[in-house]
Write a protein that binds this DNA or RNA. Structure first.
Lengths: 193, 193
DNA sequence: CTGATTTCTTGATCAGGATCAATGAATGAT
DNA sequence: ATCATTCATTGATCCTGATCAAGAAATCAG
């Protein structure tokens, strides 16, 4: 029988006792978002944390000039949300949007706190995952500054080649930090044969 | 009597029981770094986490082309290190350098794990602080992409005006992500009277 | 205090991304 | 299938940061 993709994620990185999983799962609900549906936007208080079962969600900021800057695409098997706002019930600066018909698991704050305090392996997953994400984000900050758009593009196609098939190019452009026109030219430059 | 700056940091954000502090403090040692001393560099396994008592430390990456990209200046009252490498004893990609004669508290992995498992308030501080830092880093990634150098400069002087007095301009330039020449011109553009 | 080194500024040129505009391709609705 | 809309490409021009080069200012060592 197929393993649940949430259990797979929990186990993949640091191990998670399978016998605890049914208990954890009771805290989550299921939900679907329509293509292009905005899940939350800057100013909202984030009430749920999501785990993507199927589909794709983007996290993005909107600059004072109104430019959308995508920082992350959450695909199948990823958590997605904004813990700061979620945990402290304060307004977020982030926006979330489903880019396809997307099915998620979600958990609210009360259940999250219960899960965190009663399932030690879930706590451990969070702590270790945060260490990993922080290291990644730091690197990302460094690279965001010093990579040229060409380098960012080549890094993206080497790390997540499928994203280019999956998403319209203007989302890729917003992720790399260039205009769609420039991305089109970058692609031309970087395509041999 | 003056409050210890570490206790002040622990209490400032989420509260920390003062009576637990002496116990926590026994896990830390004291150490000084000379001006420009490199604390650890990419490839090293990070053996300590630091708390800055006096002075200033920068965190930076070195790009494949050899360009240094500074992502953070840790001043008095800040933790500084790289948890991913520290906790897992794996090589880091980050570099740390003292920019002034700098006094720190430090803790090794064994003591850190003991502190984390025996002082719940310390655990809580770490979890909550990570949530805060992750949210900040995400924003930073977004801004790193879409802000112009002028905007980055103005944001820096509004958030941390003292850094400009404290540090040579080429460090500020490496933080903003421009050459020292460009920073000099930005400063000219943005100075009235 | 003096000379040497480092840091900062200024100038000129160059490269590449933004913008504006138009056309072509792909997608979606009926 | 057809039409409408959205998305991708291409061209021309403009703007800004990088680079190379030189000189000025500040800092440091003796």
């Amino acid at each position: 029988m197929d393993q649940h993709s949430l259990l797979k994620e929990l186990q993949s990185r640091y191990g998670f006792p399978a016998e605890e999983f049914p208990k954890l799962l009771t805290f989550f609900g299921e939900k679907s978002f329509k293509k292009n549906e905005v899940i939350f936007k800057a100013g909202d208080i984030v009430r749920h944390t999501y785990f993507v079962m199927k589909g794709c969600i983007r996290q993005y900021y909107i600059s004072p000039e109104g430019i959308e800057r995508t920082i992350y695409f959450a695909e199948e098997g990823s958590f997605c949300g904004e813990l700061m706002s979620f945990v402290h019930s304060t307004p977020t600066n982030l926006n979330l949007q489903a880019l396809e018909e997307t099915d998620v698991l979600f958990i609210n704050l009360k259940d999250w706190e219960t899960a965190i305090t009663t399932i030690p392996a879930f706590t451990l997953y969070h702590i270790k995952n945060h260490q990993r994400l922080m290291a990644k984000l730091k690197e990302e900050v460094g690279k965001a500054h010093n990579e040229t758009p060409d380098e960012k593009y080549r890094r993206l196609i080497s790390e997540k080649p499928h994203l280019l098939q999956r998403l319209p190019q203007y989302h890729i452009a917003a992720y790399i930090g260039v205009t769609p026109e420039t991305l089109s030219r970058i692609r031309k430059r970087n395509t041999q044969i």
